[in-house]
Design a protein around this nucleic acid. Structure first.
Length: 133
DNA sequence: GTTGAGCGTT
C-alpha cells in the first residue's frame, strides 16, 4: 500500500477511504442529510460516495449564521444530498453567504432548483441554480 | 457583535 493511502487509512480509523465513505452514508447527518438516525444509502448515493458523478447546485443568499448541517437538512427535501459546502472568507473566516449543495442524481438537483429557488430559508429567499461546472 | 453581491481553500 502506498504511503499516502496508509496515512489516509490511519486518519480514518482504519477504514479504507471508500469504506469510510459508505460508512458515513449510513451514519447521519453527514454526508447524506436524513431525518432518520440510521438509513441505507441508495445506489446513487453509494456511487457518489465512491467518486461517481455529483450534481452540484449553487446556493446564494444564505443567512450568515446558517450551518452546512441545517442547509443539508433543508435541501434533503428535494432529494438525496451527498455534500454541502459553505464558502468562507479565507482571511476573516466569515461566511460569504453562498455555497454549494451536491446531489446524488440529476433529478434531485433539478427538483431543488425547481422547488427551492426563491424559497424562504430562515428569513432569506435562497437563490438556487445549477453551479458553473 | 459591521456586512447582503458573490460560483467553491485541499
Amino acid at each position: 500500500m502506498a504511503a499516502s493511502a496508509e496515512a489516509g487509512v490511519r486518519a480514518r480509523g482504519g477504514r479504507t477511504p471508500l469504506l469510510q465513505s459508505i460508512f458515513e452514508l449510513t451514519t447521519s447527518p453527514f454526508p447524506v442529510f436524513s431525518s432518520r438516525l440510521l438509513r441505507l444509502p441508495n445506489p446513487a448515493e453509494v456511487m457518489a460516495a465512491a467518486g461517481g458523478p455529483r450534481y452540484s447546485v449553487y446556493v446564494g443568499n444564505i443567512p450568515y449564521q446558517a450551518t452546512e448541517d441545517e442547509l443539508g437538512h433543508f435541501f434533503s427535501q428535494a432529494g438525496s444530498v451527498v455534500n454541502v459546502r459553505l464558502v468562507y472568507d479565507r482571511e476573516t473566516g466569515r461566511p460569504k453567504g453562498f455555497g454549494f449543495c451536491e446531489f446524488a442524481d440529476e433529478n434531485s438537483a433539478q427538483q431543488a432548483i425547481n422547488s427551492l429557488n426563491g424559497s424562504d430559508f430562515n428569513g432569506r429567499a435562497l437563490r438556487v441554480n445549477w453551479a458553473n461546472k
